[in-house]
Design a protein around this nucleic acid. Structure first.
Length: 503
RNA sequence: GGCGGCGUAGCUCAGAUGGUUAGAGCGCACGGCUCAUAAUCGUGAGGUCGUCGGUUCGAUCCCGACCGCCGCUACCA
């Protein structure tokens, strides 16, 4: 029997001023597929996402729109929830950093850090550009001027509380050394390590210049700087400081899925903060690359942000989900192009998977009156399929969806190939036809299971068309992946092509 | 400047703790089939594995230099 394990998976919480774009969708679909896989293998899964709603920019945007920050974010946060619903993201909890539970957790967590002696008050001095409303390092300046506005910066001083990050350089290095798998892939781990090896400086974690944030419990003049409150969302959702049993159930065996732009926050600050608060650092941080668009970074200024919902309307949601996970190497940068999506859609979904289903159902209907035959126990495909499903399992467990999908498509290919050899459409009804079609249907059943995390809608539809009850998500993978479980006498439905060819 | 990474078929990328003919998918060419969404199946072309040296019986894989590209190098979420 498979022992039930805990699988707590998180995405970053998104800055609510953004519009959900394909980059966010990439993270969400990835995390969703992992969550779905782990539910399939009967793990106890908790999948968390949310929105980040504090900080100066939010306060400014709210003011510009004549609203209070809270009213402003109340209006914006649902855009993310709607988008994720449309992308079929199966999150279990959606956290907003403006919720009372979050204030409570942030205050109790940082109070622990404070009580443990890792927070102190000092003066922050920095070179500030009034136009940017941002601090600059001296090296960033252009002849002493702000590089953007080309105006002199002013030396500003602000009283801040500082987090004693410098105290954790050695402990972090030791942590990285002891748990080489904690931050993956290794290229991203190196990046974080390189940063730590420079030696860490203390960082200011509170502001007095704004009040849109979580108040510092021991000093009402200050609010926490938005990043410090944001990271703590992962603990809010599991009731840190409120429900010890729930907290211990999920922590520290967490999987943070993040983009490479926030490595420092998650792979340096966050583990250190956990140490400072006296809890274990997160067990796993998986860093993925960026999804580029035609080789360019997605950016507002470039005007190349892609709307995932428009794509889903155009290609179908599952096709977009498939493309995102198949055409990128999780951990490296990926590149989105309309052409590549179309190519994947046509060759993998229409020509292979969709067409296999279509040709099999046509022959079952015409030769066997629509009644499905059963697979052959000692089929030549059995060993191959078993090997494929083992690869699928390993790939999913190693967060390598592209490998799982590649393996599944090799099985689709084999099923197509054996149909060519036996050519059941040429034969008179009899065992030979039944055997080859039973095998092909069994392949489809297995593909549905392995594919379910990526394409929950489409694989459920294939599942239904080949006469199976329920959906692939109901199975227990540990037994369902064995060859030969497709039942005979199912009624096969010949429907419209699942993925009509494009262009 | 420092640290890290990358450079393999037209394209996107795998890969080997060094060992006979370097792999996949897409694209392309030829052939088969006609159940299927002009889908599918088979065969094939083609790459001195960035350059130059070194170690070795033997390197694309190890070492060095060089060329080219990229990331990080602190509180702008």
């Amino acid at each position: 029997m498979h022992a039930v394990s805990k699988f707590f998976i998180t995405t970053p919480i998104y800055y609510v001023n953004d519009v959900p774009h394909l980059g966010h969708a990439y993270t969400m679909v990835s995390a969703d597929s992992f969550a779905r896989w782990h539910r399939l293998i009967s793990d106890d899964v908790f999948f968390l996402t949310g929105t980040d709603e504090h900080g100066l920019k939010i306060a400014q945007a709210a003011a510009e729109n004549g609203m209070s920050p809270k009213e402003w974010t109340d209006q914006l946060s649902p855009r993310f929830q709607d988008a994720w619903q449309k992308l079929n993201i199966s999150y279990d909890d959606f956290i907003r950093t403006t919720e009372p539970r979050h204030y409570e957790t942030v205050q109790s967590f940082l109070k622990s850090v404070y009580d443990n002696g890792f927070i102190y008050k000092d003066i922050y001095r920095g070179l500030y550009c009034v136009s940017c409303e941002a601090y600059y390092q001296e090296a960033e300046l252009d002849k002493g001027n702000c590089p953007i506005h080309n105006r002199p910066v002013t030396l500003m001083e602000e009283e801040n509380y500082f987090f004693r990050l410098s105290a954790f350089t050695e402990r972090l290095l030791e942590w990285y050394d002891r748990l080489p798998e904690a931050v993956r892939p290794s290229s991203k781990r190196n990046e974080a390590l390189g940063f730590i090896r420079q030696g860490l400086q203390d960082i200011s974690i509170t502001r007095t210049s704004i009040n849109w944030g979580v108040p510092v419990p021991w000093d009402s003049q200050h609010v926490f700087y938005v990043w410090y409150d944001a990271l703590i969302n992962y603990l809010t959702a599991i009731d840190y400081g409120r429900d010890q049993a729930k907290f211990q159930r999920w922590w520290p065996s967490v999987h943070h899925v993040i983009g490479k732009d926030i490595i420092r926050f998650h792979c340096v600050w966050w583990p250190a903060m956990c140490m400072a608060a006296g809890i274990d650092p997160p067990a796993n941080i998986f860093v993925h690359g960026w999804l580029l668009v035609g080789g360019e970074k997605m950016a507002k200024s470039a005007g190349n942000k892609v709307d995932p919902l428009e794509l889903a309307d155009d290609f179908g949601l599952d096709a977009v989900r498939y493309y995102l996970l198949r055409d990128t190497n999780f951990g490296s940068d990926g590149d989105f192009t309309y052409e590549a999506l179309t190519s994947r859609y046509n060759s993998d979904l229409a020509n292979n998977l969709g067409n296999l289903l279509q040709r099999v159902s046509t022959v079952v209907v015409s030769k066997l009156e629509g009644k499905a035959p059963k697979p052959v126990a000692e089929s030549p495909l059995a060993a191959f399929a078993t090997e494929v499903m083992e690869r699928v399992k390993v790939s999913w467990n190693q967060f390598a969806p592209q490998d799982a999908l590649e393996a599944l498509w090799s099985l689709i290919h084999e099923a197509n190939a054996i149909l060519e050899v036996v050519a059941p459409w040429k034969l008179a009804p009899g065992p030979e036809i039944e055997n080859v079609l039973g095998d092909a249907l069994e392949c489809l059943r297995l593909v549905c299971i392995g594919l379910y995390p990526v394409m929950p809608g489409a694989s459920s539809e294939v599942w239904r068309r080949i006469g199976l009850d329920g959906s692939p998500e109901d199975v227990d993978v540990m037994s369902a992946l064995r060859w030969g479980q497709y039942q005979s006498s199912m009624i096969i439905e010949k429907g419209a092509p699942l993925f009509p060819r494009r262009k």
